[in-house]
Write a protein that binds this DNA or RNA. Structure first.
Length: 484
RNA sequence: AGUCCCUUCGUCUAGCGGUCUAGGACGUCGCCCUUUCACGGCGAAAACACGGGUUCGAUUCCCGUAGGGAUCACCA
């Protein structure tokens, strides 16, 4: 990209960008901002670009940049073109500041930090708005060699109205704004300068960002006008709040997206769907595919008020996507978790078992953690552990049912769900028991728990040898019940 | 403090002057299905912040109040 790319030969009608600062991890709010930018660009057949705002050298880190890229990749928000690293463009930013200095739209300010601090203290004491008072605005007698910053000579009268695509028309009097610093005394650009210059050079047509930037937009517009550049359209989306209505914090889920993937075991499409529905709606639609989202997304449908993050609903949405997900994909996803829990590597046989049981398993899980832990009993080696519920079931089982059931099952030639169930029902009938009185002890013996997927499906998947073995194990631990 | 923004069930939202005795989803509760737990199905409770206008008629338009949020840097 050239230093000043005004050429726009084949400039797309819509160019959006996601511009995170790599000072932390990509959090959920940032992910939503990225999603809206992505969707809007794709909806209009335009471009979605990524810019890393790393001008804060002290706080920007490589791991943070990697985390941002990792998060966007996981969510599959594919950006167009090369990633723009803001810091590398510092010379261009300085060039613009100096250009403004030359044409009179900016000036040197020699006020020291201490000086400005006392100015603010006085304003605070007088209960006046704290703004730079423009003391160097019309002076050119700066001390030789003294450090200075370059400030924008912003209009002081009149007002500016931004037709925000989300917030609607917003007007602010120029008197409310002060002359912002463009270039610091060390020659580095401020964020305000850098964003405007980069957005212009990247050909950004729509600035979609958190509404914490709404106030900044007016200052940035003054700079854009001073440069006589085309003005982008703005869309300031409300920030996400925690369940208690307060700003999102770690307690609420302002975690890196990696936490949603790794710790919570969520699916990227579910996180995307949830984020999309947070502050945006399309009739009664809840589960919305990427393609539909692109077709339907419009900034005018984005709500103006902040919405609260609801983990329960996220889990629910994730559960729906989990049930619709491909079984083989889920097997792959839970493999590491299962291996860790089991303390051993997963074999092909294990994989096969997981694949066969996945349809049953996923109905009982809303995230990958649940899915993995729910699958464990299939893969444990005998004798499998019994939880409290299972122990109680075995202790209160009608005398002899387990042994009788074992005998019945052992006589089955066709080891199938249907055959297993038929024998169990027959046994219950002859002994005058309800099916549950037979099935529950069996469930305990075979799964080690009082809750599990369908018992006969489980036994069919486990196979004759393993099933019978587990029943034998249970029989061994049971106190000798008055024989027959 | 000032400036700016926002306000429909607990939560996310639909609604864009009459179709609202306000719809959907999550959550909650009940019932059904059923060998357990889930899934699934059915049903219930649950909201237009308040006060003024405008209008034949306001959830929908305007103003005020209250509440919430954003913002005060040589941070981004």
């Amino acid at each position: 990209m050239g230093a000043s790319s005004d050429s726009g030969a084949q400039t797309p009608a819509v160019v959006t960008r996601f511009a995170p600062s790599p000072t932390g991890f990509l959090h959920i709010g940032g992910a939503r901002t990225a999603l809206f930018n992505y969707l809007f660009a794709r909806h209009h057949g335009g471009q979605f670009q990524l810019r890393i705002e790393d001008t804060d050298r002290a706080r920007s880190t490589e791991p943070a940049i990697a985390a941002i890229i990792d998060g966007l990749t996981w969510l599959d928000f594919e950006w167009d073109g090369e990633i723009v690293h803001q810091f590398a463009r510092a010379p261009r930013h300085a060039q613009v500041a100096n250009h403004l200095l030359v044409n009179g739209h900016a000036y040197r300010c020699y006020a020291t930090a201490e000086e400005l601090e006392t100015m603010r203290a006085e304003q605070r004491a007088a209960k006046l708005p704290m703004r730079y008072d423009g003391r160097w605005r019309d002076r050119t007698d700066g001390p030789d060699g003294a450090p200075f910053v370059i400030r924008l000579k912003a209009p002081q009268t009149g007002s500016v109205t931004i037709d925000d695509l989300v917030q609607g028309p917003v007007t602010v009097a120029n008197a409310e704004l002060d002359d912002m610093v463009l270039l610091r005394s060390d020659g580095t650009p401020t964020y305000m300068l850098a964003v405007v210059v980069d957005d212009h050079d990247m050909g950004v047509t729509h600035v979609i960002r958190g509404d914490d930037h709404l106030n900044n937009a007016f200052r940035q517009l003054a700079l854009i006008r001073a440069m006589n550049w085309p003005e982008p359209q703005y869309a300031h989306i409300p920030l996400i709040h925690g369940a208690d209505g307060a700003k999102l914090s770690k307690r609420h889920g302002a975690l890196g997206v990696d936490a949603y993937r790794d710790e919570m075991g969520l699916l990227p499409e579910a996180v995307e769907n949830y984020l999309l529905r947070l502050g945006w709606g399309h009739g009664d639609d809840e589960i919305i595919s990427r393609a539909q989202a692109i077709a339907w997304f419009d900034l005018k449908d984005v709500g103006r008020g902040p919405s609260r993050f609801d983990m329960k609903k996220l889990e629910s949405v994730n559960g729906q996507y989990l049930r619709a997900a491909d079984d083989a994909r889920l097997v792959t996803l839970i493999e590491p978790r299962v291996a860790t829990a089991l303390g051993r590597a997963i074999t092909d046989s294990d994989r096969n078992t997981l694949q066969c049981s996945m349809a049953e398993l996923k109905k009982r899980a809303s995230n990958l953690n649940d899915l993995a832990s729910g699958a464990l009993f299939f893969l444990r080696t005998r004798p499998i552990p019994m939880d409290d519920g299972a122990t109680k079931l075995l202790a209160s089982a009608p005398p002899g049912v387990l042994a009788d059931a074992r005998t019945q099952f052992a006589g089955i030639n066709d080891w199938s769900t249907a055959a297993l169930e038929e024998r169990a029902r027959a046994l219950a009938e002859t002994r005058g028991l309800k099916l549950g009185q037979v099935a529950q002890p069996l469930r305990a013996a075979v799964t080690g728990s009082s809750q599990s997927p369908g018992l006969f499906e489980v036994m069919a998947i486990l196979g004759r040898e393993e099933t019978l073995g587990r029943i034998d194990d249970a029989l061994d631990t049971m106190p000798a019940q008055g024989a027959n």
